[in-house]
Design a binder for these strands. Sequence first.
DNA 1: AAACATCGCAACCGCTCCAAC
DNA 2: CGTTGGAGCGGTTGCGATGTT
Length: 325
Amino acid sequence: MGRHSCSVKQKLRKGLWSPEEDEKLCNYITNFGIGSWSSVPKLAGLQRCGKSCRLRWINYLRPDLKRGMFSQDEEDKIISLHQVLGNRWAQIAAQLPGRTDNEIKNFWNSSLKKKLMKQGIDPNTHKPLKENQAIKDEENCTNKTSMLQIPSHLNEMANGQFTESKQVFDLLFVPDFQANSNPSEYNSEVLAQYHDHQSEFENNQNYVFCSVSSVTKLEHGQMTETDFGSSSTSRMSSSNSSNMCSNQNTAGIQINGMSENSEALSWDIENKMESLFQYPYIGIKNEELKSSPSQERDQLYGNTTSGDFMSNYPLSSLTEEFKWG
DNA sequence: AAACATCGCAACCGCTCCAAC
DNA sequence: CGTTGGAGCGGTTGCGATGTT
Protein backbone atom coordinates (compact mmCIF):
# COMPACT_ATOMS: atom_id res chain seq x y z
CA MET A 1 0.00 0.00 0.00
CA GLY A 2 1.53 3.25 -1.07
CA ARG A 3 1.72 6.24 1.15
CA HIS A 4 -0.84 8.93 0.63
CA SER A 5 0.20 12.17 -0.90
CA CYS A 6 0.32 14.72 1.89
CA SER A 7 -2.26 16.96 0.27
CA VAL A 8 -4.79 14.12 0.00
CA LYS A 9 -5.08 13.65 3.76
CA GLN A 10 -6.76 16.98 4.33
CA LYS A 11 -8.07 19.82 2.27
CA LEU A 12 -4.70 21.32 1.55
CA ARG A 13 -3.83 23.81 -1.09
CA LYS A 14 -1.82 22.71 -4.10
CA GLY A 15 -0.29 24.47 -7.05
CA LEU A 16 1.38 27.82 -7.25
CA TRP A 17 2.11 29.72 -4.09
CA SER A 18 0.52 33.11 -3.55
CA PRO A 19 2.61 36.05 -2.31
CA GLU A 20 0.65 35.89 0.97
CA GLU A 21 1.62 32.27 1.50
CA ASP A 22 5.22 33.07 0.70
CA GLU A 23 5.19 35.84 3.23
CA LYS A 24 3.69 33.64 5.94
CA LEU A 25 6.25 30.93 5.36
CA CYS A 26 9.11 33.38 5.18
CA ASN A 27 8.07 35.16 8.35
CA TYR A 28 7.66 31.93 10.25
CA ILE A 29 11.02 30.48 9.27
CA THR A 30 12.80 33.76 9.81
CA ASN A 31 11.40 34.03 13.31
CA PHE A 32 11.34 30.43 14.47
CA GLY A 33 13.55 28.46 12.16
CA ILE A 34 12.56 25.30 10.39
CA GLY A 35 12.34 22.66 13.10
CA SER A 36 10.06 19.94 11.85
CA TRP A 37 8.69 20.52 8.38
CA SER A 38 5.53 18.62 9.19
CA SER A 39 4.65 21.16 11.86
CA VAL A 40 5.68 24.24 9.88
CA PRO A 41 2.43 24.70 7.90
CA LYS A 42 0.28 24.46 11.01
CA LEU A 43 2.42 26.85 12.98
CA ALA A 44 2.81 29.23 10.07
CA GLY A 45 -0.92 29.21 9.36
CA LEU A 46 -0.69 27.64 5.93
CA GLN A 47 -3.04 25.22 4.23
CA ARG A 48 -0.13 23.31 2.76
CA CYS A 49 1.63 20.09 3.58
CA GLY A 50 5.06 20.21 5.17
CA LYS A 51 6.60 18.76 2.09
CA SER A 52 5.26 21.53 -0.05
CA CYS A 53 6.54 24.13 2.43
CA ARG A 54 9.94 22.57 2.48
CA LEU A 55 10.14 22.61 -1.31
CA ARG A 56 8.96 26.19 -1.54
CA TRP A 57 11.53 27.32 0.99
CA ILE A 58 14.42 25.38 -0.49
CA ASN A 59 13.70 26.18 -4.12
CA TYR A 60 12.39 29.69 -3.93
CA LEU A 61 12.33 31.53 -0.63
CA ARG A 62 15.70 30.72 0.89
CA PRO A 63 17.61 34.00 1.23
CA ASP A 64 20.89 32.59 -0.07
CA LEU A 65 19.52 31.70 -3.48
CA LYS A 66 21.28 33.19 -6.45
CA ARG A 67 18.58 32.92 -9.13
CA GLY A 68 18.93 34.37 -12.60
CA MET A 69 20.86 33.04 -15.56
CA PHE A 70 23.58 30.47 -15.13
CA SER A 71 27.04 31.80 -15.86
CA GLN A 72 29.37 30.06 -18.28
CA ASP A 73 31.43 29.00 -15.31
CA GLU A 74 28.43 27.42 -13.63
CA GLU A 75 27.43 25.77 -16.87
CA ASP A 76 30.87 24.21 -17.28
CA LYS A 77 30.81 23.08 -13.70
CA ILE A 78 27.43 21.43 -14.08
CA ILE A 79 28.57 19.55 -17.16
CA SER A 80 31.74 18.38 -15.44
CA LEU A 81 29.89 17.35 -12.33
CA HIS A 82 27.19 15.59 -14.30
CA GLN A 83 29.88 13.67 -16.04
CA VAL A 84 31.05 12.40 -12.68
CA LEU A 85 27.84 12.21 -10.69
CA GLY A 86 25.17 11.60 -13.28
CA ASN A 87 21.68 12.77 -12.31
CA ARG A 88 22.56 13.28 -8.69
CA TRP A 89 21.21 16.79 -8.75
CA ALA A 90 21.42 17.38 -5.04
CA GLN A 91 25.11 16.56 -5.05
CA ILE A 92 25.69 18.75 -8.06
CA ALA A 93 23.79 21.58 -6.40
CA ALA A 94 25.95 21.22 -3.32
CA GLN A 95 28.93 22.30 -5.44
CA LEU A 96 27.13 25.36 -6.78
CA PRO A 97 26.37 27.83 -4.01
CA GLY A 98 23.02 29.52 -4.35
CA ARG A 99 21.64 27.01 -6.81
CA THR A 100 19.05 24.36 -6.07
CA ASP A 101 18.88 20.81 -7.31
CA ASN A 102 15.56 21.57 -8.98
CA GLU A 103 16.97 24.59 -10.75
CA ILE A 104 19.96 22.66 -12.02
CA LYS A 105 17.82 19.73 -13.07
CA ASN A 106 15.52 22.02 -15.03
CA PHE A 107 18.43 23.83 -16.60
CA TRP A 108 19.98 20.54 -17.59
CA ASN A 109 16.80 19.13 -19.09
CA SER A 110 15.75 22.27 -20.88
CA SER A 111 19.05 23.67 -22.04
CA LEU A 112 22.28 21.83 -21.40
CA LYS A 113 21.08 18.50 -22.73
CA LYS A 114 20.19 20.05 -26.07
CA LYS A 115 23.39 22.04 -26.16
CA LEU A 116 25.48 18.91 -25.75
CA MET A 117 23.44 17.06 -28.34
CA LYS A 118 24.10 19.88 -30.78
CA GLN A 119 27.80 19.49 -30.11
CA GLY A 120 27.49 15.82 -30.95
CA ILE A 121 27.91 14.74 -27.35
CA ASP A 122 25.65 12.23 -25.70
CA PRO A 123 24.37 14.01 -22.55
CA ASN A 124 24.06 10.72 -20.70
CA THR A 125 27.53 9.40 -21.31
CA HIS A 126 29.33 12.63 -22.25
CA LYS A 127 30.94 10.79 -25.10
CA PRO A 128 30.69 11.66 -28.75
CA LEU A 129 27.50 10.18 -30.15
CA LYS A 130 29.31 8.12 -32.79
CA GLU A 131 31.70 6.73 -30.24
CA ASN A 132 28.79 5.57 -28.13
CA GLN A 133 27.57 3.39 -30.93
CA ALA A 134 31.05 1.94 -31.30
CA ILE A 135 31.15 1.23 -27.57
CA LYS A 136 27.80 -0.50 -27.69
CA ASP A 137 29.02 -2.69 -30.51
CA GLU A 138 32.14 -3.39 -28.53
CA GLU A 139 30.16 -4.31 -25.44
CA ASN A 140 28.01 -6.69 -27.38
CA CYS A 141 31.11 -8.29 -28.70
CA THR A 142 32.73 -8.57 -25.27
CA ASN A 143 29.62 -9.84 -23.56
CA LYS A 144 29.67 -12.77 -25.89
CA THR A 145 33.17 -13.80 -24.90
CA SER A 146 33.07 -12.55 -21.30
CA MET A 147 36.64 -13.58 -20.82
CA LEU A 148 39.60 -11.73 -19.44
CA GLN A 149 43.00 -13.15 -18.96
CA ILE A 150 45.03 -11.67 -16.16
CA PRO A 151 48.70 -12.31 -15.65
CA SER A 152 49.01 -13.09 -11.96
CA HIS A 153 52.50 -11.64 -11.62
CA LEU A 154 51.08 -8.22 -12.29
CA ASN A 155 49.32 -8.35 -8.96
CA GLU A 156 52.63 -7.96 -7.17
CA MET A 157 53.56 -4.97 -9.25
CA ALA A 158 50.88 -2.96 -7.61
CA ASN A 159 52.19 -3.27 -4.07
CA GLY A 160 53.20 -0.03 -2.46
CA GLN A 161 51.58 2.13 -5.06
CA PHE A 162 48.67 3.40 -3.06
CA THR A 163 47.72 6.41 -1.11
CA GLU A 164 46.12 6.35 2.28
CA SER A 165 42.73 6.68 0.64
CA LYS A 166 40.31 3.86 0.99
CA GLN A 167 41.46 1.21 -1.36
CA VAL A 168 38.90 -0.55 -3.36
CA PHE A 169 40.79 -1.56 -6.41
CA ASP A 170 44.47 -2.07 -6.51
CA LEU A 171 45.09 -3.16 -9.94
CA LEU A 172 42.93 -3.15 -12.95
CA PHE A 173 43.63 -4.75 -16.21
CA VAL A 174 41.91 -4.26 -19.40
CA PRO A 175 42.50 -5.71 -22.79
CA ASP A 176 43.62 -2.94 -25.03
CA PHE A 177 40.88 -2.23 -27.45
CA GLN A 178 42.65 0.76 -28.88
CA ALA A 179 43.83 -0.06 -32.33
CA ASN A 180 46.88 2.16 -32.04
CA SER A 181 48.20 0.72 -28.82
CA ASN A 182 51.90 1.17 -28.50
CA PRO A 183 53.80 0.29 -25.33
CA SER A 184 56.48 2.88 -26.11
CA GLU A 185 53.98 5.56 -25.26
CA TYR A 186 54.02 4.62 -21.60
CA ASN A 187 56.35 6.47 -19.29
CA SER A 188 59.77 5.07 -18.53
CA GLU A 189 58.89 3.22 -15.37
CA VAL A 190 55.89 1.63 -16.89
CA LEU A 191 57.92 0.85 -19.92
CA ALA A 192 60.57 -0.82 -17.77
CA GLN A 193 57.92 -2.92 -16.16
CA TYR A 194 56.55 -3.68 -19.52
CA HIS A 195 59.93 -4.96 -20.66
CA ASP A 196 60.29 -7.03 -17.51
CA HIS A 197 57.16 -8.83 -18.39
CA GLN A 198 57.23 -8.33 -22.10
CA SER A 199 56.79 -11.90 -23.10
CA GLU A 200 53.84 -12.31 -20.82
CA PHE A 201 52.31 -9.12 -22.07
CA GLU A 202 52.71 -10.24 -25.58
CA ASN A 203 51.27 -13.60 -24.80
CA ASN A 204 48.34 -11.91 -23.23
CA GLN A 205 47.59 -9.45 -25.96
CA ASN A 206 48.23 -5.83 -25.18
CA TYR A 207 47.34 -5.54 -21.57
CA VAL A 208 46.98 -2.11 -20.17
CA PHE A 209 47.65 -1.74 -16.51
CA CYS A 210 47.26 0.95 -13.96
CA SER A 211 46.42 1.17 -10.33
CA VAL A 212 43.30 2.73 -9.06
CA SER A 213 43.90 3.57 -5.47
CA SER A 214 40.65 4.90 -4.23
CA VAL A 215 37.03 5.26 -4.90
CA THR A 216 35.76 7.97 -2.69
CA LYS A 217 32.49 7.35 -1.04
CA LEU A 218 29.38 8.59 -2.71
CA GLU A 219 27.54 10.83 -0.38
CA HIS A 220 24.27 9.04 -0.94
CA GLY A 221 23.63 5.45 -1.68
CA GLN A 222 26.05 2.69 -2.10
CA MET A 223 28.53 1.87 -4.75
CA THR A 224 26.29 -0.60 -6.45
CA GLU A 225 26.73 -2.24 -9.77
CA THR A 226 24.63 0.44 -11.39
CA ASP A 227 26.30 3.25 -9.55
CA PHE A 228 29.68 2.10 -10.48
CA GLY A 229 28.81 1.54 -14.04
CA SER A 230 26.98 4.73 -14.68
CA SER A 231 29.00 7.11 -12.61
CA SER A 232 32.43 5.91 -13.42
CA THR A 233 32.14 5.07 -17.05
CA SER A 234 32.75 8.56 -18.19
CA ARG A 235 34.77 9.72 -15.26
CA MET A 236 38.12 9.59 -16.89
CA SER A 237 37.14 11.42 -19.98
CA SER A 238 37.33 14.68 -18.14
CA SER A 239 40.49 16.57 -18.87
CA ASN A 240 40.80 17.66 -15.27
CA SER A 241 39.59 14.46 -13.75
CA SER A 242 42.57 14.18 -11.48
CA ASN A 243 41.71 17.44 -9.80
CA MET A 244 38.11 16.58 -9.51
CA CYS A 245 38.75 13.16 -8.16
CA SER A 246 41.15 14.35 -5.54
CA ASN A 247 38.31 15.95 -3.70
CA GLN A 248 37.30 13.44 -1.10
CA ASN A 249 33.86 14.91 -0.78
CA THR A 250 32.88 14.01 -4.26
CA ALA A 251 32.59 10.69 -5.91
CA GLY A 252 35.61 9.88 -7.91
CA ILE A 253 38.35 7.51 -8.70
CA GLN A 254 41.90 8.45 -8.12
CA ILE A 255 44.36 6.98 -10.49
CA ASN A 256 47.92 6.38 -9.57
CA GLY A 257 50.22 6.09 -12.48
CA MET A 258 53.13 3.79 -11.89
CA SER A 259 55.34 6.71 -10.98
CA GLU A 260 55.14 10.27 -9.77
CA ASN A 261 55.53 11.38 -13.32
CA SER A 262 52.04 10.45 -14.26
CA GLU A 263 51.59 12.87 -17.09
CA ALA A 264 53.35 10.54 -19.45
CA LEU A 265 50.52 8.16 -18.83
CA SER A 266 47.93 10.65 -19.82
CA TRP A 267 47.30 9.41 -23.30
CA ASP A 268 46.93 5.84 -22.28
CA ILE A 269 45.13 6.43 -19.05
CA GLU A 270 42.67 8.82 -20.58
CA ASN A 271 41.91 6.61 -23.49
CA LYS A 272 42.11 3.25 -21.93
CA MET A 273 40.17 4.11 -18.85
CA GLU A 274 37.33 4.82 -21.21
CA SER A 275 37.53 1.24 -22.27
CA LEU A 276 38.26 0.05 -18.80
CA PHE A 277 35.16 1.42 -17.22
CA GLN A 278 32.95 -0.36 -19.61
CA TYR A 279 33.91 -3.33 -17.50
CA PRO A 280 33.04 -2.39 -13.96
CA TYR A 281 33.65 -5.91 -12.77
CA ILE A 282 37.36 -5.89 -13.41
CA GLY A 283 38.86 -5.55 -10.01
CA ILE A 284 40.47 -7.40 -7.18
CA LYS A 285 40.52 -6.29 -3.61
CA ASN A 286 43.87 -5.19 -2.30
CA GLU A 287 43.72 -7.05 1.00
CA GLU A 288 42.99 -10.29 -0.71
CA LEU A 289 45.77 -9.86 -3.19
CA LYS A 290 48.34 -8.89 -0.61
CA SER A 291 47.49 -11.71 1.71
CA SER A 292 47.20 -14.37 -0.91
CA PRO A 293 50.15 -16.08 -2.43
CA SER A 294 49.86 -16.72 -6.13
CA GLN A 295 48.52 -20.23 -5.81
CA GLU A 296 45.92 -19.18 -3.32
CA ARG A 297 44.89 -16.32 -5.54
CA ASP A 298 44.54 -18.65 -8.42
CA GLN A 299 42.24 -20.74 -6.28
CA LEU A 300 40.28 -17.67 -5.32
CA TYR A 301 40.03 -16.03 -8.70
CA GLY A 302 40.97 -18.78 -11.03
CA ASN A 303 44.22 -19.12 -12.83
CA THR A 304 44.69 -15.51 -13.68
CA THR A 305 47.44 -16.21 -16.12
CA SER A 306 45.49 -18.33 -18.46
CA GLY A 307 42.12 -19.01 -16.94
CA ASP A 308 38.74 -17.58 -17.50
CA PHE A 309 38.69 -14.83 -14.92
CA MET A 310 35.05 -13.99 -15.17
CA SER A 311 33.86 -17.53 -14.76
CA ASN A 312 35.75 -17.80 -11.49
CA TYR A 313 34.92 -14.39 -10.22
CA PRO A 314 31.53 -13.43 -11.55
CA LEU A 315 30.07 -9.99 -11.66
CA SER A 316 27.64 -10.63 -8.82
CA SER A 317 30.35 -11.43 -6.30
CA LEU A 318 32.52 -8.53 -7.37
CA THR A 319 29.87 -5.90 -7.20
CA GLU A 320 29.01 -7.09 -3.73
CA GLU A 321 32.48 -5.99 -2.71
CA PHE A 322 32.05 -2.56 -4.20
CA LYS A 323 29.34 -1.75 -1.72
CA TRP A 324 30.39 0.49 1.10
CA GLY A 325 29.69 -0.67 4.55
C1' DA B 1 -5.25 37.92 -34.88
C1' DA B 2 -6.00 33.27 -33.76
C1' DA B 3 -4.62 28.64 -33.25
C1' DC B 4 -1.21 25.63 -32.30
C1' DA B 5 3.46 24.11 -30.78
C1' DT B 6 7.28 24.49 -27.90
C1' DC B 7 9.78 25.89 -23.91
C1' DG B 8 10.98 26.70 -19.16
C1' DC B 9 9.97 26.57 -14.63
C1' DA B 10 7.54 25.54 -10.35
C1' DA B 11 5.51 22.13 -8.01
C1' DC B 12 3.96 17.47 -7.30
C1' DC B 13 4.54 12.46 -6.83
C1' DG B 14 6.45 8.29 -5.55
C1' DC B 15 10.17 6.32 -3.83
C1' DT B 16 14.17 5.33 -0.55
C1' DC B 17 16.62 6.09 3.55
C1' DC B 18 16.93 6.45 8.27
C1' DA B 19 15.95 7.48 13.01
C1' DA B 20 12.74 6.87 16.67
C1' DC B 21 9.79 3.94 18.92
C1' DC C 1 13.37 -6.67 14.86
C1' DG C 2 9.42 -4.66 12.66
C1' DT C 3 6.75 -0.46 12.07
C1' DT C 4 6.07 4.29 11.42
C1' DG C 5 6.78 8.79 9.87
C1' DG C 6 9.81 12.62 8.46
C1' DA C 7 13.31 14.17 5.27
C1' DG C 8 15.22 14.24 1.03
C1' DC C 9 15.87 12.86 -3.76
C1' DG C 10 14.98 12.33 -8.76
C1' DG C 11 11.48 11.86 -12.26
C1' DT C 12 7.44 13.74 -14.04
C1' DT C 13 3.62 16.81 -14.76
C1' DG C 14 1.08 21.05 -15.41
C1' DC C 15 0.76 25.51 -16.77
C1' DG C 16 1.94 30.13 -18.19
C1' DA C 17 4.94 32.43 -21.48
C1' DT C 18 6.74 32.70 -25.83
C1' DG C 19 7.37 31.48 -30.61
C1' DT C 20 5.61 29.90 -35.08
C1' DT C 21 2.41 29.17 -38.68
